[in-house]
């Protein structure tokens, strides 16, 4: 139980951060802020391998454009790209796989809505996008963290149960594989390294949520 209490806040922030990076392209001012606050260095400290010089040599709108082109090429297309939706990777009960709006898509939407959350009206795509799944985790861990702080261990543990179930039912089934495909498809350091970081984090989460359980 102690382990969970200690890392709840950080886990929440990581999910939020990764979700944001997969959600959409970074804007120029966001890239500037990233460079100014030393986030690239910190990412490298944490095991990434991003060539900082690739950022320093160029004007900011060039970087913005390069990253945006890379983002579109990897996740959106046209042409061969790495689809960021779960149902492309995870088969239905009858074994069908590789199409949009599969059983898992409906299930993700159900999870989100069952807990009184809502998918933004601005969002016009399908609910099993990687960033939505990561954001859902963030929301549950947020409640977990608040509950620990309030001393409401019961709710915190229930949150963990929800996290564990959702994670095992959805995220672990495809996100690591998805990340590997992003790593392979990436041409720039940034998305390749973020995908690697995501994968490592998700595998660590698997250990934490499933193995730690016994000790908790």
């Amino acid at each position: 139980m102690e382990t969970y209490r200690e890392v709840a806040r950080q886990r929440k922030e990581i999910y939020a951060f990764l979700a944001a990076l997969f959600r959409e392209e970074l804007k120029a001012e966001q890239i500037t802020a990233m460079l100014e606050s030393g986030i690239i260095e910190r990412l490298n400290d944490a095991g990434c391998n991003i060539d900082i010089n690739a950022f320093l040599d160029k004007p900011i709108d060039r970087i913005e454009e390069e990253l945006a082109v890379e983002f579109t090429r990897i996740f959106i297309g046209p042409g061969k790209h790495v689809v960021p939706y779960e149902s492309i990777y995870v088969p239905d009960q009858d074994g069908r796989v590789g199409y949009y709006w599969g059983e898992c898509t409906v299930d993700v939407k159900n999870w989100v809505e069952h807990y009184g959350l809502k998918i933004s009206e601005m969002y016009d795509s399908i609910p099993d996008h990687v960033s939505i799944e990561l954001e859902f985790m963030e929301k549950v861990i947020e409640l977990e963290e608040i509950s620990w702080r309030k001393g409401d261990n019961e709710t915190a543990l229930k949150c963990l149960e929800v996290e564990r179930t959702f994670f095992n039912k959805h995220i672990i089934k495809w996100v690591p594989h998805f990340c590997e495909r992003v790593q392979a498809a990436a041409e720039l350091d940034f998305y390749r390294e973020i995908a690697g970081l995501t994968k490592d984090f998700i595998l660590e989460e698997e250990r934490l949520l499933n193995e730690e359980r016994i000790r908790a």
């Binding site: 990581i14 951060f17 606050s37 910190r42 400290d45």
Partner: peptide, 16 residues
Amino acid sequence: DILRIGALSALALTTM
């Protein structure tokens, strides 16, 4: 690592 990445995520979330 989790603590470290958590801290950088928090920083990124606010500054970015």
